[in-house]
Design a binder for these strands. Structure first.
Lengths: 143, 143
DNA sequence: TACGAACCCGACCAAAACGCTCAGAAAGGT
DNA sequence: ACCTTTCTGAGCGTTTTGGTCGGGTTCGTA
């Protein structure tokens, strides 16, 4: 049930970019310093974020990376899906990468995993980068 | 965010045992047939379930495995923790296996992961084997 | 007391995922 | 020209996953 370091690092990077939005492009070295990730590794991740449309970049002197969208438009659930794959805990309940399982008829577990998938997605899909920046987190379950 | 096959198989086995509760001990071969898991692999898992107190066993002719507790006492969250480790998506928010992260001061992600941990735990800790057997699942998020 | 059913236990192994590093090539700025 | 910075892909060690296999122990039954 873990989230991988790639996902964590990607979100860290997005947070750094979100903080400096509308000011200037942030070079890789600076993002690396603030996120405590090696430049070579972080580079890969930023590339990935770029191809998925979350960041823009510019080369050469005074180049660097910047957020392409306003932070309120960056949905954490989507970022996680792009970098980690489906949120579903088992592929038999994945909406985006469904794979059948031989047990399916009347499998009680499938129903449970679906609930887990929905609750996690519910949290991550309602949180945006903007929410993280303003500390506006979804509330944990109450009852 | 996946759950491993060990956890899935363990729960399948517990379901089989739960269905035949109070009747007789179920031999490994029979559980394997119903769960579609190889006997050699399933054996390991049942052993683990035994050392954690979920199942009892008896050797020799007419031996086999059985549930040690009534299904309503078997909390899915606990089973998952035993077989998969902490439910927390990052170790920086694990209650049972906390490991610090150098970023901690004011890390917005830590707060998010904590919410995820709580929502998942909230589901799994309120579902018992008995609930699965009777189809009494926790409701998915509504709003 | 012998035999077979069934659990117990540990060693071992292949493949995949993870978490990177490194060596350049290409492009933009001055 | 030259420097800065992003781009790209190959490669690689470690850990986790998902098992298999072989032999030992215990129990019931005849």
């Amino acid at each position: 049930m873990k989230v991988s370091s790639r996902g964590e690092y990607a979100l860290r990077a997005l947070l750094v970019l979100g903080k400096n939005r509308d000011t200037r492009l942030i070079p890789l070295s600076e993002i690396a310093a603030q996120t405590l990730v090696s430049t070579s590794y972080l580079e890969q991740i930023l590339l990935q974020l770029k191809t998925h449309g979350y960041v823009k970049s510019k080369r050469g002197t005074h180049g660097g990376y910047g957020l392409r969208l306003p932070p309120e438009k960056v949905v954490i659930g989507e970022v996680v899906r792009q970098l980690e794959g489906p949120i579903a805990p088992m592929s038999c309940v994945s909406l985006t990468a469904y794979e059948p399982c031989p047990l399916e008829e009347g499998c009680q577990l499938q129903l449970l995993w679906a609930v887990v998938r929905d609750t996690v997605a519910h949290v991550l899909d309602r949180t945006t980068l903007g929410d993280l920046l303003t500390g506006n987190l979804p509330r944990p379950p109450t009852d």
